[in-house]
Amino acid sequence: MSAVEAFAPRATLNIRDVSKSYVVDEKPLPVLRNIALDVQPGEFVSIVGASGCGKSTLLRLVVGLDADYEGEILLNGRRIEGPGRERGIVFQEHRLFPWLTVEDNIALGLDGSDEPQHVLDKRVRDNIALVGLAGFEKAYPHQLSGGMAQRAAIARSLVTQPAILLLDEPLGALDSITRAYLQKELLRIWQQERVTVIMVTHDVDEAVFLSDRVVVMEPRPGRIRSIVPVGLTHPRQRASVEFARVKGEILRDLSGE
């Protein structure tokens, strides 16, 4: 398998005192309050929390789909304004365009690039290989299983060589066997690409298995309750005492004891 040659550019993300409310029945409903988080280049940070704690909303702010918030989000010191190709995102649903083949879906991210076609073609090929989909370039999304479609979505988000990859419960809709398998794949891709990752998940086990740090959020309004450093070497053993200890700590924070 050929690695994607250039490593991702380094990215430092600073989320400074971010708050956001929706307006429901003409009354403001706070969804995020005073979120502060710094993510270092190459770091893998997970955000866990009960549904309604605003973790997906936070990701939408970082990717630039929603600009209506207070506070500041800085990428390498510059304020984020709208979406940008230095930030890739994978949603819980694969969101591949059903009318495009796998390779055409992945090539979408390179639309409008100045580089010569053969370079772009190679980038698409390399990313297909990276996620283990070689041989399925011409397949349509409906011909893929859920896990394979999500791999294609990961390749689509990586093809732009983003500095930071945002994962919004990317494995949440998959069965447990496929999920465990793709967790290892995500780990491999992250180590290979050295990309900064922020992943939203409700699976504590998954967060501990993959992350350098786990951000625990609590709902109504969404706040950061604690940030737990994992501090274990890869590959992590789920059955180990240390793994269970970190997991236990996070679960305690989640239940608010």
């Binding site: 709208g82 979406p83 190709r85 649903e93 365009f97 979408l108 639309d111």
Partner: peptide
Amino acid sequence: AQYFEVASVLRLSRLTRIRKL
């Protein structure tokens, strides 16, 4: 609307939006 979000995250040009979405 999910596909339009993908289009804006990928910064698709107007022409590509028309042709591919």
